[in-house]
Amino acid sequence: MALKVGILGFGGLGQAAAKLLSAKQEMQLVVAADKEGFAYDNQGLKATEAISVYQSKGSLGYLDKGILTQNSIAEAIAMAKDVDGYFLALPNLPNTFMASVAKQFIASGWKGVLVDAIKRTSAVEQMIALSPELEAAGITYMSGCGATPGLLTAAAAIAAQSFAEVHKVEINFGVGIANWNAYRATIREDIAHMSGYTVDIAQAMSDAEVEALLEKTNGLIELTNMEHADDIMLERIGICDRDRVTVGGIVDTRNPKKPLSTNMKLTGRTFEGKISTHTFTLGDETSMAANVCGTAFGYLKAGKQFHQRGIYGLMTAAEVMPAFVR
């Protein structure tokens, strides 16, 4: 029987996640929520209809099975009791937001699997601190399960096996999107990583201010030495100290073609004393949405397998293999 899943957040990533699920047999989208409302149908929501209504009217609450409310997350959790797991496709703005959502699940009494794709080290640290509460609540929480952190962190964990000592992990990503409006929350999170900007500044920026910034940079956001949770995730499982992990990238907000090929390079010393580098490069044709959403649902499936065995609490993408969703 297909797992019943929900999506919280219905911006660019949430809509892409709904599209991805529509082609899957092992998972069925039954609930989705945005800021203004949610929709729940235990027989399944149609992705095309949900996306069309959201784009034309601004909320899933306008669907036939929808409810308009300012308290959409709590009400969706309360109504959709039979959901196996949720992908939290939410912007982590402010930096405490994802932890506050996890606390809503803990307080609700719901038991199941939660997956996030948060980026910041400090955000994942907050989730790690919540692990005892998640465990006590019967929730299996998979954190940092996007592309980076996520897919590329898992690749680093595998690549490390060839080495006696890992000297450095370098992650460089290229993201190309035709129009920043499709991924407004993600772009704001990226701006928060730019020199001279913070999460609070990025969150407070109006759309016009974002447009003005992108006009100055020709639509490019260049990021170096980011506060990215790949570092704590690899340190947590003993692969290397976090200061040996660097993450950076270029986001082109005006062109769907990637400005550079996303890759992970891990350099280390083998037991024979040789220095070498493993490189894992993602195909340029795979979009950010494909790499994030596919990974997130792979971890949701893996998380369900743990949950069925009574294993609760927090795990990250670096310590678990994702399971492929057919």
Rank of each mutant, 00 (worst) to 15 (best):
L93M: 13
G150T: 07
A136I: 09
A47R: 02
A102Q: 04
L88H: 00
A50E: 02
S100I: 09
L45C: 06
L114W: 01
A154H: 13
A137R: 00
C145I: 07
V124N: 06
R120K: 15
T140M: 05
N92I: 10
I73P: 00
T96M: 06
K46W: 07
P132C: 08
S52P: 01
M127Y: 02
E49A: 15
A147M: 15
L68S: 06
A129H: 13
C145L: 05
E125N: 12
A117E: 02
Y54I: 10
L93Y: 03
G66M: 02
P94T: 11
A117G: 04
A147H: 13
R120F: 15
Q55N: 15
Q104L: 15
R120Y: 13
D84H: 14
P94V: 13
I67Y: 10
A154Y: 11
Y62A: 12
G58D: 11
P91E: 05
A155H: 00
D84G: 12
G109E: 08
W110D: 08
A154E: 10
Q55G: 14
M142E: 07
L90I: 15
L134V: 11
Y141L: 09
V83S: 07
P94N: 06
I73K: 00
A129R: 11
A47Y: 05
P94I: 11
I139M: 05
A47V: 11
I51A: 03
E75F: 11
L45I: 07
Y141K: 09
S122Y: 02
I128R: 04
T121V: 12
D64R: 15
G61D: 09
L60S: 04
G144C: 05
A155Y: 00
A89V: 04
T48L: 14
A137V: 07
M79D: 12
L63F: 01
A123T: 05
D84N: 15
G85V: 11
G66D: 00
V115W: 00
A156R: 00
A99D: 05
I139L: 09
